[in-house]
């Protein structure tokens, strides 16, 4: 009995596949790209949380219609409006910061909800096995094999666009990734001695799964989470770009880019260029973080999944 907690404890200090925290993190910090990604994520997070307090221009104020200043229609970047103004004379920077809150918030919520649900469901059916496992994994495979944006478009068609719905459908498209991964890890871990030990101690299945198995599957899950946030942010933006996501006048990076399409013909590139650049920077950052984590936690073969 006395040796069992020791077994258990040793497993807990490693992140899955026998990679310990210490040297891995040092390597990761030396990996400049991954650190740059981390800075990018931190900067974006700071910008959208603190930005609207620092840049005090009202994102909803229409310089042309409410301010009566026609020169503010599609004004190019200047000191007053560092990123220019849109067709209504609204400040692009202020909208970018406010829209970032929406876009990143939706992406984060959808990834948390989707990957979280996926991990719990995938872990449970992986541990229990049998018919439930076969059925749930078939559904997950079906969803994985289906073009996400097509699914989102048809769901938006049926239910009408709203933010909770966008989060829900994005989560729906994200859960199979978490489920697949968690199930695979659970299948690999459930025969390991420390799980058998826990079973021998008579722990409940719930306690074994959530207390012993899933914590040891943290490494690969940590890799896909930033990836999932990045993808959810892009999906939300794409959906809003098509007019099926966040609805104006509420800004999101996707619908800002769409509103910038027509002004392009007048040479007003700043309306759609900046939200897109912000999006690229954020998604790239998340991908770099994920890449860094992947190389740290799984230094042998790196297999990219689509």
């Amino acid at each position: 009995m006395a040796s069992l907690p020791f077994l258990h404890g040793r497993e807990r200090h490693t992140l899955g596949r026998g990679v310990s925290w210490g040297p891995g993190w040092a390597w990761w910090l030396r990996n400049r790209w991954a650190v740059m990604g981390l800075w990018g994520v931190a900067l974006a997070g700071a910008a959208v949380t603190l930005g609207p307090w620092l840049w005090r221009t009202d994102p909803a104020f229409q310089g042309v219609y409410q301010g009566g200043d026609l020169s503010l229609r599609l004004a190019p970047p200047s000191l007053d409006h560092p990123l220019g103004t849109d067709a209504f004379g609204r400040d692009v920077l202020a909208r970018l910061l406010q829209g970032g809150r929406i876009s990143l918030g939706i992406g984060l919520a959808a990834a948390l909800l989707g990957v979280g649900t996926g991990v719990v469901v995938g872990g449970m059916v992986g541990y229990v096995g049998g018919l439930a496992d076969a059925l749930v994994m078939r559904i997950a495979d079906t969803l994985l094999a289906f073009p996400k944006l097509v699914l989102l478009v048809s769901l938006a068609a049926l239910f009408g666009p709203s933010i909770p719905l966008v989060i829900g459908t994005l989560a729906l498209s994200q859960w199979p990734v978490g489920a697949r991964l968690a199930r695979g890890e659970v299948l690999a871990l459930r025969q390991r001695p420390f799980v058998e030990a826990a079973r021998a101690l008579g722990f409940s299945r719930r306690r074994i799964l959530f207390g012993h198995v899933l914590p040891n599957a943290a490494a690969p899950l940590l890799v896909i989470f930033p990836l999932s946030v990045g993808e959810a942010v892009v999906m939300e933006a794409s959906l809003s770009f098509l007019g099926l996501g966040v609805q104006p006048p509420l800004a999101s990076w996707g619908n800002m880019a769409a509103e910038g399409l027509n002004p392009l013909a007048e040479g007003a590139w700043w309306v759609s260029a900046f939200p897109g650049l912000a999006l690229v920077a954020v998604v790239l950052s998340f991908n770099l973080v994920s890449e860094g984590l992947r190389e740290t936690l799984n230094p042998r073969g790196l297999r990219g999944h689509s």
């Binding site: 990045g230 892009v234 933006a237 794409s238 770009f241 098509l242 996707g254 880019a257 910038g260 399409l261 392009l264 013909a265 040479g267 590139w269 759609s272 260029a273 897109g276 999006l279 690229v280 998604v283 790239l284 991908n287 770099l288 890449e291």
Partner: peptide
Amino acid sequence: SLFFYSVPPFWLGTMLVLMFGV
């Protein structure tokens, strides 16, 4: 590669419209 992997197609398309169309 990682850059283009991260660029959403709707924005790349918009920028191409700007470059070649405008």
